[in-house]
């Protein structure tokens, strides 16, 4: 799996592509650790290139989301391919995450978000 990170308006964006599984999850968790050190952490994970996701990968995203929220920040997801969207719907994780169709909207929502 490939991962590309960038910062847009103080929002940390991670773009992933390929197979997001137990082999790839530790690297994503490490990235999460690095960006959630500064609070409030505002993070967008762009899954546009991910065609497969397993439970270890979902755990990494859930942990990242929890860490962001603990520090009054937020983690948004965007650009889910159909197989990945189905997994989020089956597990109902779509009720726990805020998911956007486009990265720009996700970033804009976090940029405008008033951190309470």
């Amino acid at each position: 799996m490939q991962q590309v990170s960038r910062s847009i308006n103080d929002v940390a964006v991670l773009e992933l592509s390929g197979r997001f599984d137990s082999h790839a999850a530790p690297a994503v968790s490490a990235w999460m650790d690095s960006v959630t050190g500064r609070q409030p952490a505002r993070v967008v994970v762009n899954l546009s290139g991910v065609h497969f996701i397993d439970s270890a990968a979902l755990s990494a995203l859930v942990s990242g989301m929890k860490r962001c929220r603990t520090g009054k920040g937020e983690l948004y997801l965007c650009c889910l391919q159909q197989p990945v969207r189905i997994i989020f719907e089956l597990t109902r994780l779509n009720r726990a995450f805020t998911i956007f169709d486009e990265e720009a909207i996700a970033v804009a929502m976090l940029t405008d978000r008033t951190i309470s």
Partner: peptide
């Protein structure tokens, strides 16, 4: 299909 989120994700499964 499930309606609740998995245990351990939120403090309430909904």
């Amino acid at each position: 299909e499930a309606d609740g989120v998995p245990m351990g994700v939120l403090d309430d499964t909904l």
